[in-house]
């Protein structure tokens, strides 16, 4: 286990560097005045959703097709992808808050479905992000998985948030499609008729 982890160390560092590039580009664009905050809302939110999808995919996929080398590596970094998704969601919120420029304005539009679904998504994402460490995993044991499953609800709220703001079905659907596909596949596999009889 220890050897495994140290081997992954450099890989994970590289992964985090790659994951940080879009965020750095967004912040740099804003600070230099090339991009206005309003235009960073969509890319930051999109990154959060994409990483969330990437974190949610390998689990059911491995269950359906079995974990080969590639999927095992993917599984090994999925918590990193999930945490990165959460960080992009926070960046998205920060851009929004700075752009709104007043707490009163933020509170005033809280009742809009396009807005509160975003807050809901973030709130539902907090438990999983807060328990993403090895330590939390050890302490929580079986309950850890239950907490992580709340991310499904966060994903659903995120897609709604996107849809209600943008009314662009294709884009949100395109991101949700892989998840729906693997969940369906897994659901079919878990049907009693597909399960191996215990001998």
């Amino acid at each position: 286990m220890t050897a495994d982890r140290s081997r992954l160390g450099l890989g994970k560092l590289l992964l985090w560097l790659v994951l940080a590039v879009p965020a750095a580009a967004m912040v740099a664009g804003w600070l230099s005045g090339r991009v206005i905050l309003m235009d960073l809302l969509e890319p930051s939110g999109e990154m959060a959703v994409r990483l969330m999808v990437l974190a949610l995919l390998p689990g059911p996929l491995a269950e359906c097709i079995g974990a080969g080398r590639f999927l095992r590596a993917w599984l090994a970094v999925r918590r990193n992808l999930g945490v990165a998704a959460f960080l992009y969601a926070l960046l998205h919120l920060a851009f929004y808050a700075i752009d709104m420029n007043a707490l009163s304005a933020i509170l005033e539009e809280l009742e809009l479905p396009g807005i509160w679904t975003g807050w809901l998504a973030l709130a539902l994402f907090v438990p999983a992000a807060a328990t993403s460490t090895d330590r939390a995993m050890r302490i929580l044991r079986r309950r850890w998985k239950t907490i992580q499953r709340v991310v499904y609800a966060a994903a659903a709220a995120s897609f709604l948030h996107w849809l209600l703001l943008d009314w662009n079905w294709q884009k949100a659907a395109l991101h949700a499609a892989p998840l729906i596909l693997v969940w369906l596949l897994r659901a079919v596999r878990r049907l009693p008729s597909h399960q191996r009889r215990p001998t």
């Binding site: 479905p113 509160w116 679904t117 499904y152 609800a153 969940w183």
Partner: peptide
């Protein structure tokens, strides 16, 4: 969990 999520979130579509 996913089922509940969809169930809880669906009304938002109709509220708008």
């Amino acid at each position: 969990t996913p089922f509940l999520a969809v169930l809880l979130a669906a009304p938002a579509l109709f509220l708008s």
